[in-house]
Design a protein around this nucleic acid. Structure first.
Length: 787
DNA sequence: GTTAGCAGCGTTTTT
DNA sequence: CGCTGCTAAC
């Protein structure tokens, strides 16, 4: 976290007279001019509690910006007296960016960030109040789990029956509700085979000993400090004259308390949110927080932003129709002054592959502008799925037809194994006493230090009351460790010593040092020798990691940041269709949106309904609402009658949400290939084709189809045959059968045959596939990836 | 200490 | 079906 130790000293004051009059500034409140009445109302209500109920696409960010501008220019608050809270670093970054680009000359808000980053900032200053030192480390979920596993086995609990994951989940849910071990209600004492609170307590003790926190602690500790130390709380209350909160519907109890404590005295809190977009209940978010706002803050002003600037009327009507089935809403009615546009399209398919194929074709049709809307480029299109395993069908299909796509929200960069391993090395170099880092990498690459040797080190360290590294050193010194492991361990320790000395000396750049560490430790080499398909990608990630170091001036600074920030948004120049989960899509918008897999059990998810009943179903429905409202111009919902689930073919029923779509705003399409057939029993309601837009002509004219044609030497007869026709066009390709190739996703494989510019490849791990040649590279080109 | 082979299981995941 | 994580055999 940057500048955590900055004092609360006042920033230089800028005279009011200079504030409002930016560059053009003849008026004092230019930012109010292009707001609609509701937005304006929300912006002008500066004092007292305000709830801004902002529907999807209603210009909430704009209103937020204007509010900050208004606070500042009116002289009510300096830039360092405004606390602006978001959920993601991305959102905070965007806000910062937007503010910077307003013409109102507002300085950077000093207290803008996520709940977590702001909490770190506060916690660093008062760490001793909860038994930590101010340089505490923040554990990721991996470290957390390892720690728990140790505790669990030390308690002789059968981890098979009582998994550490379960305990982690329980602790998480307690922390989400700001429950310290002593506050866990007796009604939950039975958790984890009656030993939940006990383990929780041990876990917290262990964290304190390690001078560490997990994510949940960041908020929890703050709340505890605020509650137990009124003087500290008062200091912050006085300081944060105005509080802004985004995505309020996603706050959990701990966050709610955090906010309420801080806002208690002045009550200038403005919460922005949309109860209809609350989709993180399973993570502890409480829709109740937003529903209860007026009770929590009596006299609160509630402003509804309902004019939508994003979607067509048909799309809004469809979304509204679905969400209307939810009970207990605060209630909003989105409307638009814009066009009715195209109706939401609905189509059923025989199976998931057919669905993927059809969507691929529709994407190409939309690119050409053949779907009643102006041409849209690939960046303007998205496929939003309920669960990530649904992505596969699309990836497979798009790979085959050579349609560029990007998957959003895979494992985050800093969460990847190799990145975390590398960071563990950096952590050791910075603080050799970091036991969790030590454990992570002491035998990585393999140094012949297995469970036994590591157990010995643990015991030695505990006996001496020293960190593991020192324990290992001592063990070595008294020859308590034998064989091949000893030499390697010595080398490892010497390495850490050397790197640590280098960090302290700071004579070379931290980037150089990072490279040296990865090199000397043998970590890079380990991946270079690894012949699995992932290895090249991992080396690539390591390179990226080192590159990311450039933005910081020390390893310490970098580690501090990375523990909180996801820096994965490397925007590429190539146009690509986006594939992501509905959750990941929140806050985004696209001209063209596909919502596949609307089948009962998949969406709404069976598990949600089983575990959380009606509440779960309502959250699923909000997810549907979020999905539809991502679309600006064209929204297509689809389902398949058959789907392979865990290798078994299952017959599927259309989602109940489909029945909730208002008919007047929906076009039912018939899939090509099912002329006159309907979809049988699976789709009784929509079996009849009302319209048939996906004509044969379109299919035959799609770019993908044309690409296939151009590459072939003989015309094809049926679209369905396209994949199977074998043509001798090896002249088009520089490959010959028998060549070894590498593919980013499928790894290494051997070419069996060549069809047009597509290669029939037998992948070592992924089996046979048809791949467009430009998606693979000759295997020898990846054998030695430089680092 | 390492690795092959099998049993078990399978959402969503802002920090 | 395909991944993870543990056990059993090298």
């Amino acid at each position: 976290m940057e500048d955590w130790d900055d004092s609360l000293a006042p920033a230089p004051k800028i005279p009011l007279s200079q504030r409002a009059l930016g560059q053009g500034g003849a008026r004092s409140t230019p930012y109010l001019d292009d707001l609609n009445p509701a937005q304006r109302e929300a912006v002008e209500a500066l004092d007292g509690p305000v709830l801004m109920l902002a529907g999807a696409g209603t210009g909430k960010t704009k209103a937020l910006m204007a509010r900050v501008a208004h606070l500042w220019t009116s002289g009510r608050a300096r830039e360092d007296q405004i606390l602006a809270v978001t959920f993601t670093n991305k959102a905070a970054g965007q806000m910062r960016h937007r503010l910077k680009n307003t013409p109102f000359n507002i300085p950077d808000l000093r207290w803008m960030g996520t709940f977590h980053s702001l909490s770190v900032k506060i916690l660093r200053r008062h760490a001793e109040l909860v038994g930590l030192k101010s340089n505490f480390t923040i554990l990721d979920t991996d470290d957390q789990l390892r720690l728990l596993k140790q505790l669990i086995s030390a308690n002789n609990i059968d981890e098979k029956r009582w998994p550490a994951r379960m305990m982690a989940g329980i602790i998480d849910s307690w922390k989400n509700r700001a429950l310290t071990p002593d506050r866990v209600p007796s009604s939950e004492a039975a958790a984890y085979n009656n030993r939940g609170t006990e383990i929780y307590e041990q876990y917290q003790d262990r964290l304190r000993t390690l001078n560490a926190t997990d994510f949940g602690d960041l908020l929890l500790h703050c709340v505890v400090i605020f509650q137990k130390h009124p003087d500290v709380l008062e200091q912050y209350q006085r300081w944060f004259k105005y509080i802004l909160v985004d995505e309020y519907q996603d706050t959990n109890v701990a966050q709610y308390l955090w906010l309420r404590l801080l806002a208690q005295s002045h009550r200038n809190i403005c919460c922005v949110g949309d109860d209809d977009q609350s989709i993180y209940g399973w993570r502890g978010a409480e829709v109740g927080n937003i529903l209860r706002f007026e009770k929590d803050f009596p006299g609160a002003k509630v402003v509804r932003l309902e004019q939508n600037y994003r979607s067509t009327a048909h799309i809004l009507a469809a979304a509204s129709g679905v969400i209307a089935s939810n009970a207990g809403r605060l209630g909003k009615t989105l409307w638009t002054a814009g066009e009715a546009g195209e109706k939401v399209r609905l189509i059923g398919h025989w199976d998931g592959e057919e669905e993927a194929r059809w969507i691929g074709e529709e994407i190409e049709a939309a690119q050409r502008g053949a779907r009643g809307i102006k041409p849209v480029d690939l960046n303007g299109m998205a496929i939003l799925v309920r669960a990530s395993h649904q992505m596969r069908a699309f990836e497979d299909r798009f790979l085959t037809i050579g349609l560029p796509y990007r998957v959003i929200g895979g494992p985050r960069f800093y969460e990847r194994q190799e990145v975390r391993d590398a960071m563990a090395y950096f952590r050791l170099a910075v603080s050799p006493e970091d036991d969790l880092a030590f454990e992570r990498v002491v035998n990585l690459p393999k140094r012949g230090l297995g469970d036994k040797a590591q157990g010995d080190i643990q015991r030695e360290a505990r006996a001496l009351g020293l960190p593991l590294l020192e324990g290992a050193r001592a063990l070595l010194a008294r020859a308590g460790i034998g064989g091949k492991g000893a030499g390697q361990l010595r080398q490892f320790i010497e390495g850490v010593d050397r790197w640590h000395a280098a960090v302290l000396a700071a004579t070379q750049s931290h980037i150089e040092l990072a490279e040296i560490i990865l090199d000397e430790s043998g970590y890079t080499e380990m991946w270079q020798n690894d012949k699995t398909p992932e290895a090249p990608g991992r080396l690539e990630n390591l390179k990226e990691l080192v590159k990311a170091l450039e933005q910081f001036d020390s390893l310490q600074g970098f580690l501090e940041h990375v523990s909180l920030i996801m820096e994965n948004d490397t925007e590429e120049a190539v146009e690509k269709v986006s594939i992501m989960t509905l959750h990941a899509a929140k806050g985004l918008e696209f001209p063209v949106v596909f919502l596949p897999g609307w089948e009962d059990g998949l969406f709404p998810s069976q598990r949600s309904m089983d575990e959380s009943g009606k509440k779960g179903l309502e959250e699923e429905r909000r997810l549907a609402y979020v999905g539809i409202t991502r679309a600006e111009e064209l929204c297509t919902i689809s389902f398949a009658s058959n789907r392979r689930v865990y290798g078994q073919w299952q017959s599927q029923l259309p989602s109940r949400f489909i029945d909730e779509l208002p008919e007047d705003h929906v076009d039912v399409l018939t899939p090509p290939g099912l002329y006159g057939g309907g979809f049988g029993a699976a789709a009784p309601t929509y079996g009849a084709a009302l319209e048939d837009r996906a004509t044969k002509a379109d299919v035959y004219n799609s770019p993908g189809w044309r690409r296939m044609q151009e590459r072939s030497t003989r015309p094809m007869v049926q679209p369905s045959e396209a994949r199977h026709v074998t043509i001798d066009a090896s002249a088009l390709s520089s490959y010959v059968a028998g060549d070894r190739v590498f593919h980013q996703k499928f790894g290494y494989g051997e070419i069996l045959g060549i069809e047009g510019d597509k290669l029939q490849i037998e992948f070592d791990h992924a089996g046979p596939k048809m791949i467009v040649a430009r998606w693979v590279v000759p295997a020898h080109q990846v054998d030695d990836v430089p680092f």
